[in-house]
Design a binder for these strands. Sequence first.
DNA 1: CTTCTTTATAGTCAGAGTGACTATAAAAGA
DNA 2: TCTTTTATAGTCACTCTGACTATAAAGAAG
Lengths: 247, 247
Amino acid sequence: MSTVPEGYDPHAFAPFAVTVDLAVFTVREGRLHVLLVERGEDPYKGHWALPGGFVLPRESAEEAARRELAEETGLTRNTVCAFHLEQLRTYSDPDRDPRMRVVSVAYAALVPDLPEPRGGGDAARARWWDADGTGPLAFDHDRILADAHDRIGARLEYSCLATAFCPAEFTLGELQQVYETVWGVELDRPNFRRKVLTTPGFVQAVDGPPRRTGGRGKPAALYRAGAATALHPPLLRPEGRPEGRTS
Amino acid sequence: MSTVPEGYDPHAFAPFAVTVDLAVFTVREGRLHVLLVERGEDPYKGHWALPGGFVLPRESAEEAARRELAEETGLTRNTVCAFHLEQLRTYSDPDRDPRMRVVSVAYAALVPDLPEPRGGGDAARARWWDADGTGPLAFDHDRILADAHDRIGARLEYSCLATAFCPAEFTLGELQQVYETVWGVELDRPNFRRKVLTTPGFVQAVDGPPRRTGGRGKPAALYRAGAATALHPPLLRPEGRPEGRTS
DNA sequence: CTTCTTTATAGTCAGAGTGACTATAAAAGA
DNA sequence: TCTTTTATAGTCACTCTGACTATAAAGAAG
């Protein structure tokens, strides 16, 4: 960025396309799911890929990511604004796209359990996949997906964003299942409860003591996400390393 | 990334320039310093900026960052390879550069105390600045610098990379000063010592009991960086929030 | 050559936080 | 009614940490 020659030709410095790729995660039926789209054209025609697309000339990468998220999920722009979107990192290997030089900014989105996507946008088909059971994906999307999974696992330790996977009102059991699903471990229920409730601002009890119906056991109290965003002290994963890859 | 029209013109999808910007940090005289270069041309001529430059057509952003790092510090490519380089995030506001659309991938580099830079590369001048005492920088580099400072402060809590600021052999007092300088707090010496020494793989005692000369008090034992990269449990900052900005 | 100052290192002790439990309550199903 | 399931309350020991005190080994001051 230090110097640009005087009479420069913009095209001489603009040999790159910039895209965004999204790892949209949700928790369904006790498994971590990710939204994938089937590619309708070469390269990788017929392969599944992370949703994404080109950044337009007058928008930022984050704006592009929200636009694509709305297109792929078929939800309104306003709904999508409430979802947690987090920039992961940028992938810039010169050969990551066989067609041309494409630099991609990857984002992770955390959404509550949504209806099946309506395959909007330019994608042939779109559906939720078990995050551990995707076959080989197009481009370097296997790597992006693995990085994204690692990152949100680590973020759960130090932030409150597990609530982003839950609906507006949720039980502590549902919140615990988010942790267990993303981390792939079982947690002790009383201890989890104690930790969440003693962390100021993590969750907020819904005042009237309504209770959730439908399940089998004793009805559980309902909570909303609190005002806090960080967790102090952190809620560390039991056993082993903090991340899958210790970058 | 989902679709590219059949007969596309590469230029139609390549309206972006991609750059890297580096926040090169070091600890000198108990203060966190950052390497800045003075811009020799408009825009922002005469202003100070983070070093950086365009990503070349056949290199990745990380390769570009290491190349620029070598140019700005005047060190060999091999030396620079040993430095810790960490991708921070990508800045893509459409108006961040008044000349054209530039998307910049920001990196933080952590280096031991180096000689004054020789102002190599295309920069007019280069020098170390107190990280808290830089005036307004060019472009959005104030923001990038603040983000970088936040990030490395947070990384010190969960990773072993404080040793990246130290020479190959260092004392625990020097390592402690890295934490105190980056965090801007004072730490209790015996407690810091206990934490570092009981964390397996954080540091490794230099076998022969040599001791460091020069200082005033009792000579200190020397250590090298250990094999571990992550810290379990973390070494949390005393008081308050985990990051300056809780993104 | 003491004495002071400085830095390194060893150790103590109480409180916070956590992991592993046990116990009780309130629902649905057999 | 009894069993199963889930939620919630509480206990206890262990670990880790923050706040200390104490000792050792160097240079500086007198």
